[in-house]
Design a protein around this nucleic acid. Structure first.
Lengths: 76, 76
DNA sequence: TGCGAATGTATATTAAGCTTTACATAGTGT
DNA sequence: ACACTATGTAAAGCTTAATATACATTCGCA
């Protein structure tokens, strides 16, 4: 049973590393609302790859450094 | 004017490099339907980062090697 | 002590990812 | 000619990402 995606992210850590960038600042830079950033940080959902890449780009890191799969082995 | 995401992908190329893996095989390995793979290949949409990472993992490459942002500069 | 800035919670609504089913076309082999 | 496999198209439906709005909390600061 793996209906929920189970993805970890280091958004908050990176924001803090980036001179304490706020959720709103980050949202503006990638073109989404603050709610979206907050929900991703809280693990409430699994963003599109486009958004994920823009986020990683803001921090100058790879997508895989910002998001991690749950490593449940298979896909189910 | 970049409301639509505009993401390029190298899914087909990678499939062919991977010994001609079929859309169905790939779909099975990442746990989605063939339609989903086809639609992504055709650029009809922008998968979730979870799926993008599983796809990249199948080919042993980074997400950024499989998907590319439109490079429109900003987010609009 | 009260204001503003940053984060969190809640809920309702819209947009888009993904599934399911069904059919159509092109290539391959017998 | 017929069957089989891989790919493409299309539409209906479900689930979830993302928006919008509103309010609550904590903190620093004038």
């Amino acid at each position: 049973m793996k209906s929920r995606e189970d993805i970890r992210n280091h958004l908050r850590r990176q924001r803090l590393l980036a001179d304490g960038m706020t959720q709103q600042d980050l949202a503006d830079r990638v073109g989404v609302t603050r709610q979206t950033i907050l929900s991703i940080e809280k693990g409430k959902y699994n963003p599109s790859v486009g958004l994920a890449m823009r986020l990683a780009q803001v921090f100058g890191i790879a997508v895989e450094e910002l998001f991690e799969l749950g490593e449940g082995g298979g896909h189910d």
